[in-house]
Amino acid sequence: MEKIPILRMGDFLLVTIQIDMHDQLALKLQDDLSNAIQQHASKGVLIDISTLEMVDSFIGRMVADISGMGRILGAQTILVGMQPAVAITLVELGLSLPGVATALNVERGMEILRRKIAADGTDERPG
């Protein structure tokens, strides 16, 4: 079966979605990611969709779920590289993905994650 590869980069996981996913593949990615976060005790997840030409409500939900699930498992998720046409369409569709952090590209996403983790490190209180 097809599979979206999950790259491990130190404390982070990087997923680059390049193909037009069918729904089962998206659900499988969600499972794979939660397993990977737990297995590697990852602190952050970057989902790169810069080559994705379309995000519909199903993929939107997948991203929102990954983000929420990651938070529970202790990993911050950042959605990176959404194309303008995709962003305009998502807004029109009525999805603003309120709880999902975003960044322009992987580099910027990585910066945000590092800063976030550094801040968490100095502040041990939960919350």
């Binding site: 037009d20 303008p84 046409a85 305009i88």
Partner: peptide
């Protein structure tokens, strides 16, 4: 489920043939 993917790809192709702008293509495909 695979047919949904094929339908998306077909609509992308059709809107491109009709000369839709990228944003309009994306809206119709979505």
């Amino acid at each position: 489920e695979h047919d949904i993917v094929l339908a998306r790809q077909l609509v992308r192709k059709l809107t491109q043939e009709l000369g839709f702008s990228l944003v309009d293509q994306t809206k119709m495909v979505t």
